[in-house]
Computed example of a mutant assay.
Amino acid sequence: MHTSAGLPRTAPQAVLFDRDGTIVVDVPYNGDPSLVRPMPGAREVLDGLRSRGIPVGVVTNQSGIARGYVTREQVDAVNARVEDLLGPFAVWEVCPHGADDGCRCRKPGPGMVLSASERLGLDPAEVAVIGDIGADMGAAAAAGARGVLVPTDITLDEEIRDAPAVARDLAEAVESLWAGTP
């Protein structure tokens, strides 16, 4: 497989995942760790990447903090439960802002992907982002990272149409990142 520039595609050096709807079942504004449920196959996919020495991270918008629906402490407790169920992540990036706050971190902005890449010592072009909505793909593109969309029931048709790559599930998404690489 080649990129649009005709250059061979290289395997990513890290994979960042959206949280809600991608690695765990989406519970809107979840502040209760007992409600965390992994998406099918998530643990196996993450463990497979870890076993290959590929760092995994999370980039997640949590506007419920700005809206007063959940506290940062509740979000941190949910994230800790995600780690309990899915294993350790090399990096977590959480945007606590609302859509109108004008921050640089909120997806589809590039901030969290850029920060995670920097924290991992990587160029964003060496990183892939897997998510379930267009904002995840927008963040990847804005940062210069590769994006793979894994649609769910809430993914819009135009988000699927506009995605750089689409996979049926997390396993296919990860496999696609290594397809055609040397």
Results as ranks from 00 to 15, higher is better:
65 I>A: 09
45 V>H: 02
177 L>M: 15
110 P>V: 04
46 L>K: 00
123 D>V: 00
99 A>K: 09
105 C>N: 09
175 E>G: 04
160 I>E: 05
117 S>Q: 13
13 Q>M: 05
70 V>M: 07
140 A>K: 12
175 E>S: 09
92 W>S: 03
67 R>M: 06
29 Y>N: 15
54 I>A: 11
125 A>C: 15
121 G>Q: 01
78 V>E: 06
80 A>D: 10
8 P>R: 06
68 G>R: 12
100 D>P: 10
117 S>A: 15
106 R>H: 00
51 S>A: 15
117 S>M: 10
140 A>R: 09
145 A>E: 01
139 A>S: 15
13 Q>V: 02
6 G>I: 08
131 G>S: 13
109 G>C: 08
84 D>H: 13
72 R>T: 02
66 A>P: 13
21 G>D: 01
86 L>H: 03
63 S>D: 14
59 V>S: 07
83 E>I: 09
24 V>H: 08
68 G>I: 06
4 S>W: 10
161 R>T: 04
4 S>G: 11
40 P>N: 14
103 C>E: 05
78 V>P: 02
179 A>S: 01
58 V>E: 13
13 Q>Y: 01
138 G>N: 05
157 D>K: 11
127 V>D: 03
63 S>H: 06
13 Q>R: 08
109 G>M: 11
158 E>A: 15
74 Q>C: 10
53 G>S: 14
100 D>T: 11
82 V>S: 01
149 L>G: 04
172 E>D: 15
105 C>G: 01
57 G>Q: 13
141 A>I: 08
80 A>I: 04
47 D>W: 15
102 G>Q: 05
131 G>H: 12
157 D>P: 14
27 V>E: 05
167 A>S: 00
12 P>C: 07
61 N>R: 03
83 E>D: 13
124 P>M: 03
93 E>D: 02
72 R>A: 01
142 A>W: 14
31 G>H: 04
20 D>W: 10
144 G>R: 11
153 D>Y: 01
88 P>Y: 11
124 P>D: 00
178 W>P: 00
111 G>C: 10
95 C>W: 05
179 A>V: 10
176 S>P: 03
157 D>W: 04
109 G>P: 04
97 H>G: 08
138 G>L: 06
84 D>V: 13
170 L>H: 13
1 M>E: 10
59 V>H: 08
105 C>Y: 03
23 I>A: 12
103 C>Q: 08
112 M>N: 06
21 G>L: 08
144 G>A: 14
87 G>T: 08
181 T>V: 15
16 L>A: 05
119 R>I: 09
144 G>C: 10
182 P>F: 15
30 N>Q: 09
64 G>E: 12
58 V>Q: 11
26 D>K: 14
128 A>E: 03
151 P>Q: 13
136 D>V: 01
103 C>P: 06
176 S>I: 09
157 D>M: 10
77 A>H: 07
179 A>N: 03
45 V>Y: 06
106 R>P: 04
181 T>F: 14
8 P>Y: 08
70 V>S: 10
136 D>A: 03
116 A>W: 07
97 H>V: 01
